[in-house]
């Protein structure tokens, strides 16, 4: 590898904006050298000067090589510093790392995306791929659950997807708020309804969200006859190096950073049912 994988490259923030009360999105362009291509589902290690580094999935369009897009929730010192950047700021980037959603290989199939909360961000590059190549797929459904209407990520964009005649979008929230006229409840409710009108054998599913939400979503998918080798999930663990050296992200014999974060469900189904692995 030409570049030491432990050395961050500098990227300038082209534009940063607030998505939700604690979530921001930034568009980045490289200062050192060319933009590096990525595949949907991969992540970068983002470094805030003097504060530290965290793993953040890439949430932009892989076909748009002009900018690197990350969506970050402020949950601690480092993610807070990253979520608080302004236009023109400089951060460090290592990556991209990890496995990808194999969405380009699933042509001819009914693609079902199941997202929970911020899990929509790592799925968005795969959603863009399907929308950009919609004629290659027999169907596309997005089932998205958030805690409340105020926690719905990319709301304007979802509205645009929903208005397409070739795309089915189901939104649900755990807790409604005044003015909310949509569905209330866990994500498996609209997922089960969607699947009941589909042929499960034709579905390829990509699932990302909290582990418990992914477990129940996978159960719904299996019950609807989706083949076990046609379901992919994205796992999250503590990461310090992203190159298989630090040991933090181990999940059984897998390093989430190298063997994941995207796994075909049957690769991890044995352990995902266990606690504290």
């Amino acid at each position: 590898m030409a570049q030491d994988p432990m050395l961050p490259r500098r990227y300038r923030v082209k534009r940063a904006w607030s998505e939700l009360s604690d979530v921001s999105t930034m568009e980045l362009e490289p200062i050192d050298g060319e933009a590096v291509p990525f595949a949907p589902g991969q992540f970068n290690m983002l470094y805030a000067f003097g504060v530290g580094e965290v793993a953040i999935s890439i949430s932009g369009d892989a076909a748009d090589t002009d900018k690197l897009v990350h969506t970050i929730r402020n949950v601690g010192a480092i993610s807070g510093a990253l979520a608080g950047v302004s236009d023109g700021d400089v951060i460090g980037v290592r990556g991209p790392f990890g496995s990808a959603w194999p969405v380009a290989q699933e042509t001819g199939r009914h693609i079902v995306f199941v997202a929970g909360g911020l899990g929509l961000a790592p799925l968005r590059p795969a959603i863009y791929h399907v929308l950009n190549n919609r004629e290659q797929y027999s169907g596309m459904t997005l089932v998205y659950g958030a805690r409340s209407p105020d926690d719905l990520l990319y709301a304007d964009e979802i509205k645009a997807w929903k208005s397409r005649f070739d795309t089915e979008v189901e939104i649900t929230v755990d807790h409604a708020a005044p003015g909310w006229t949509g569905q209330v409840g866990v994500v498996t409710v609209p997922l089960d309804r969607t699947l009941s009108g589909s042929n499960g054998a034709e579905v390829s599913a990509f699932v990302c969200g909290p582990e418990i939400m992914m477990r129940f979503s996978v159960m719904s998918l299996m019950a609807a006859g989706v083949p076990e080798d046609k379901v992919w999930i994205s796992m999250e663990r503590n990461m310090k190096c992203a190159i298989g050296f630090c040991g933090h992200c181990q999940f059984g014999g897998d390093f989430i950073c190298r063997d994941g974060p995207v796994f075909r469900h049957d690769q991890v189904s044995r352990l995902i049912a266990k606690k504290e692995i």
Binding site: G50, V51, K240, C241, F245, C246, G247
Partner: peptide, 10 residues
């Protein structure tokens, strides 16, 4: 045993 952490210092 090879596990490691990183520390960012100022």
């Amino acid at each position: 045993c090879f596990c490691s952490d990183v520390e960012d210092v100022n």
